[in-house]
Design a protein around this nucleic acid. Sequence first.
DNA 1: CGGTCTACCTGAAAGC
DNA 2: TGCTTTCAGGTAGACC
Length: 269
Amino acid sequence: MPELPEIETLRKELAPTLLGKRVSKVKAYRSGLREAFPPEVLALHNDVITGVERRSKYLRLLFASGSVLIHLGMSGQLRLVSSSEPLQKHDHIEFLLDDGRSLRLRDPRRFGVVLWETLGDIHHRLTGLGPEPLSEQFNKGYLLSRLKGKNTPIKTALMDASVVVGAGNIYASEALFDAGISPFTPAKQISAYQAEELVASIKKELKLGISLGGSSMRDYVHADGSLGGFLSQAKVYGRAGKPCLGCGHPLRSDVIGGRGTVWCEQCQH
DNA sequence: CGGTCTACCTGAAAGC
DNA sequence: TGCTTTCAGGTAGACC
């Protein structure tokens, strides 16, 4: 599933190809995904891509009049193919480029979304987002201030995009294990020391994901996006019942905030 | 408003 | 074996 490191890898891979290219036409094969495709996106015609950015898990393609925002949900794939290549099942929209290639969005579960952001605006879906986890703004002091007074389990708080973006179920689980903190800990009980550990662990895991994202993304673009490079290294995610890599005790599985959570009750307090 | 729960969607995997 | 059920997960919106 595409998380922040996958989107960042995708951005890095697509940017050199897309920058300066013209989108000659946009073809849609259904009315939309979670939302209808915006008319401004469908109307792109000979518009030059002037930038490829990422904010949270959104990929942003910049044009003179605004930007296309693409969120891959949990099963979305963006593939750069020859425009003559037959469509695959679940290819929902494509951006035809002036070099004969096409950027195709495939998304079996259709949790993804394609948005239009007018030049000078920030789309309302992005305005409430917390800081980027790898930025300076995401630090011990900031995290503590946001956890203050919260009874919610720390894992739920970390996955709240208004607190910090990019910590999905996988990375939140891995970071909590790395920091030795129980996912059930009420957010307000996180100490300054633990907050510092958590910030460091989140940055560490995301950076690891990005460093492994390259290999995972190549598979992803060419094949089906199954288990990426990071998942093969996950210490708790997907390992319920298996021995903890730290102490050997079987890993526990609980539902927290409606999400499956794997953790070690020996190593995480 | 904080906190919690659920719908959305399909395919893989588990269950029977 | 083959059919049925469950589960996965980011996000927004409903609910109390």
